[in-house]
């Protein structure tokens, strides 16, 4: 378990990282970036897999099953649309 101040430090540093990453991005990339960050929180998939993995009883398993479907949709869908958008950005020098 990650607890107490260690957890708080991780939270704080990650929050600053997120802020800094977006702060200097040109508006032209905002839509792909939003979609890209949407893909990154698709990491919820690993949590959903673990939750389904140790779920007990019908209802927990059912909710876990739905959770994994949703999470996989988040990760895969986020990746596909982000990649499609970014593929189209070209410079006139290319």
């Amino acid at each position: 378990m990650i607890t107490g101040f260690v957890a708080l430090y991780i939270f704080m540093l990650a929050a600053f990282t997120g802020y800094e990453i977006i702060g200097r991005v040109p508006a032209i990339l905002h839509t792909p970036l939003m979609s890209g960050s949407n893909f990154v929180h698709g990491i919820v998939l690993v949590g959903a897999m673990v939750a389904l993995g140790h779920a007990e009883g019908f209802w927990e398993v059912l909710i876990g099953f739905i959770g994994v479907i949703l999470a996989a949709g988040n990760a895969v869908g986020g990746y596909v649309v982000t990649e499609r958008m970014l593929e189209m950005f070209k410079s006139s020098k290319d």
Binding site: M1, I2, A7, I10, F11, A14, A15, F16, T17, G18, Y19, I21, I22, G23, H30, L33, M34, S37, N38, V40, H41, I43, V44, V46, G47, V50
Partner: peptide, 19 residues
């Protein structure tokens, strides 16, 4: 207790708020 979720989720939370 999943560090990957904590970090990725927080980064997106902060970035998304700013966006």
């Amino acid at each position: 207790g999943n560090a990957a979720m904590i970090i990725a989720g927080t980064v997106v939370g902060a970035a998304g708020t700013l966006l």
